[in-house]
Simulated scan of single mutants.
Amino acid sequence: MDNQMIHVEVVYATPDKQQIVALEVPAGTTVRDAALKSGLDRQFEGLDLAKADLGIFGKAVAKPESVELSDGDRVEIYRPLIADPKEVRKQRAAKVKARQEAEGRR
């Protein structure tokens, strides 16, 4: 590389707070490197940038340590899911079924 710099953003949000950090980084910077350079872990308690799931413009990146960024990319830091979506759907369906069965017995 010829010391070319690129501009990227790193974003993270909780229900109460959101933060966008603009960075100028060397070409060849990986998704994980940009997240670590953002310093967002100092602003959000419990955020572990070394392990967090990451994406670029809404698409998850499976190996953020090896994917290089392009100029203008937005790195997104994802929060862990509180509940498994499949399990939530199963529970909701079970409630509906139980309600329908109860109404059918009347």
Results as ranks from 00 to 15, higher is better:
residue 29 T to D: 04
residue 6 I to K: 03
residue 66 S to Q: 15
residue 33 D to H: 15
residue 8 V to K: 12
residue 57 F to P: 03
residue 14 T to F: 00
residue 9 E to H: 12
residue 37 K to W: 12
residue 43 Q to W: 03
residue 32 R to E: 10
residue 69 L to W: 11
residue 46 G to I: 05
residue 26 P to N: 14
residue 69 L to T: 05
residue 36 L to N: 05
residue 38 S to D: 02
residue 35 A to N: 00
residue 64 P to F: 11
residue 36 L to P: 01
residue 25 V to H: 11
residue 55 G to E: 03
residue 44 F to I: 09
residue 60 A to T: 13
residue 47 L to H: 07
residue 50 A to W: 06
residue 17 K to R: 14
residue 24 E to P: 00
residue 56 I to A: 08
residue 35 A to I: 11
residue 38 S to K: 08
residue 7 H to C: 03
residue 18 Q to E: 10
residue 56 I to V: 15
residue 33 D to V: 03
residue 26 P to L: 15
residue 14 T to Y: 03
residue 13 A to L: 05
residue 55 G to P: 04
residue 60 A to K: 09
residue 45 E to Q: 15
residue 13 A to T: 04
residue 33 D to W: 09
residue 18 Q to N: 06
residue 12 Y to V: 00
residue 37 K to G: 00
residue 40 L to Y: 08
residue 66 S to A: 14
residue 32 R to C: 02
residue 7 H to T: 13
residue 17 K to T: 02
residue 63 K to Y: 13
residue 30 T to S: 13
residue 29 T to A: 14
residue 55 G to K: 14
residue 5 M to L: 11
residue 39 G to Q: 09
residue 44 F to L: 07
residue 61 V to L: 11
residue 26 P to M: 14
residue 12 Y to D: 01
residue 52 A to L: 08
residue 41 D to K: 05
residue 17 K to I: 01
residue 13 A to M: 03
residue 39 G to C: 09
residue 61 V to P: 01
residue 30 T to I: 13
residue 40 L to W: 06
residue 25 V to T: 01
residue 61 V to R: 13
residue 30 T to H: 06
residue 15 P to I: 07
residue 5 M to Y: 04
residue 35 A to G: 02
residue 45 E to D: 14
residue 45 E to R: 15
residue 13 A to E: 01
residue 53 D to S: 12
residue 46 G to S: 05
residue 60 A to H: 09
residue 26 P to H: 14
residue 66 S to W: 12
residue 12 Y to T: 00
residue 55 G to Y: 12
residue 36 L to R: 14
residue 66 S to N: 13
residue 71 D to A: 04
residue 45 E to C: 10
residue 27 A to L: 15
residue 20 I to N: 06
residue 19 Q to K: 15
residue 69 L to S: 05
residue 61 V to Y: 07
residue 70 S to F: 05
residue 63 K to S: 11
residue 28 G to H: 05
residue 64 P to W: 08
residue 49 L to Y: 04
residue 71 D to F: 07
residue 54 L to S: 02
residue 55 G to N: 05
residue 22 A to R: 12
residue 51 K to C: 08
residue 71 D to Q: 04
residue 10 V to R: 06
residue 12 Y to Q: 02
residue 42 R to W: 05
residue 67 V to C: 05
residue 22 A to L: 12
residue 51 K to Q: 12
residue 48 D to I: 13
residue 24 E to N: 05
residue 42 R to S: 11
residue 5 M to S: 09
residue 71 D to G: 01
residue 6 I to M: 07
residue 65 E to T: 10
residue 14 T to I: 00
residue 28 G to V: 14
residue 40 L to E: 04
residue 44 F to G: 00
residue 15 P to N: 10
residue 10 V to K: 09
residue 18 Q to S: 08
residue 60 A to V: 15
residue 56 I to D: 07
residue 22 A to C: 08
residue 50 A to C: 06
residue 49 L to P: 00
residue 21 V to N: 02
residue 6 I to G: 01
residue 21 V to H: 02
